[in-house]
């Protein structure tokens, strides 16, 4: 079977070198953010100022690739103008699409820049075709990124019932919670993905060697404790070990990455139009490695999904850059739930 539709590979870039790396290694689209709270990877030292964005767009467009801009946090009444200004800047820079979560901001973008293509961010929490179609009817969104909560059959059902292109996460850090509906970080640190573009932010992290082991804390809250032989991971609060009824374990999720490579033929047959790679906070080396593998895999699938087999070398490459050096199919695979 040869697929009638091309599946776009959407790769992350937290810097101009990462953007160029993604383009050079075969990304169809690169998604980026400005250096402020308007996007969900608002980390120190990351993201683009207007000059580097202009250069990035030029670099990608010269090679006939697209640049997508994430403006996927929720503007508040008192900072509304920062978000609308970011939409204006995106239009002016010739960004190919903006990725939005807030309906108010979509209304602004649709009215002010009718030619600017709108994508619904995963932070918009649309998990059904009724929700996706709502954003389509109201604001003309042309693509939606689905939260990492649906099984493969559910993804297929959404696609069958909407005119909107569907993009799914293929690889990278795994949100266990419905994106856009998680206030765990806000509860622990006061900073949330929704409002501040940050989850478990670095400035609240403490590493402390104690007689009991290496302890990782988030705003003083003990997220995990590691013995001598254990590799201490970053204290993302849903991936710590906690005590429930006298049992200590990864009560929410292990430190692991999503990897759907083996499911690629099924995702292709389901009609997925784009595969997203997570990791704007990761290095250009990560972007290069992951983009290369997924480019090869997607090319193989698009030339004949029936003959697709996962190359062991691909998995080995991806596991090297995975959180906890392990991977999962996440919610695509029902028993994970």
């Amino acid at each position: 079977m040869t697929l009638s539709q091309r599946i776009e590979l959407v790769c992350p870039a937290g810097s101009l070198p990462a953007l160029k790396t993604a383009v050079d290694n075969g990304a169809d689209c690169v998604y980026v953010g400005f250096k402020d709270a308007t996007n969900a990877r608002n980390f120190t030292g990351l993201n683009f100022d207007p000059a580097s964005m202009r250069e990035g767009v030029r670099y990608a467009h010269d090679r006939r690739r697209k640049v997508l801009l994430a403006l996927n946090t929720y503007p508040q009444a008192n900072n509304w103008k920062d978000w609308t200004a970011a939409v204006d800047r995106a239009a002016e820079l010739g960004i190919d699409a903006v990725i939005l979560a807030d309906p108010g901001l979509m209304a602004y973008a649709a009215k002010t820049h009718p030619d600017l293509r709108l994508h619904l961010s995963v932070q918009g929490s649309a998990t059904s075709y009724e929700a996706v179609n709502f954003y389509h009817e109201r604001f003309g969104i042309q693509r939606a990124v689905l939260p990492r909560v649906l099984s493969l059959a559910q993804v297929e059902h959404v696609i069958a019932n909407t005119p909107v292109e569907i993009e799914v996460f293929g690889f990278g850090g795994l949100c266990v919670m419905v994106e856009g509906r998680c206030a765990l970080s806000a509860y622990a640190t006061g900073e949330s993905p929704n409002c501040n573009g940050a989850c478990s932010p670095g400035k609240h992290v403490r590493w402390e060697q104690t007689p009991k082991g290496m302890e990782t804390r988030l705003n003083g809250i003990l997220i995990d404790r590691f013995g001598d032989g254990e590799r201490a991971g970053y204290p993302t609060l849903c991936k710590g070990r906690f005590d429930v009824d006298g049992e200590t374990y990864y009560a929410i999720e292990e430190p692991t990455s999503l990897n759907t490579l083996e499911m690629l033929p099924e995702l292709a047959r389901a009609g997925v139009r784009a595969i997203k790679i997570e990791g704007r906070q990761r290095s250009p080396a990560y972007v290069a490695q992951v983009t290369r593998v997924w480019r090869a895999a997607l090319d193989r699938v698009m030339s004949g999904a029936d003959r697709f087999t996962v190359q062991p070398a691909w998995m080995a490459e991806l596991d090297k850059v995975s959180e906890g050096r392990s991977h999962t199919l996440g919610a695509y695979y029902r028993p994970w739930k």
Binding site: V178, R181, A251, E253, P335
Partner: peptide, 21 residues
Amino acid sequence: RLPLAHSARCFTARHFNLQKD
């Protein structure tokens, strides 16, 4: 108690080593 997050995964079932289904 504040509802803070929703997931496709059931953490109560996970605690009892069961799958959601």
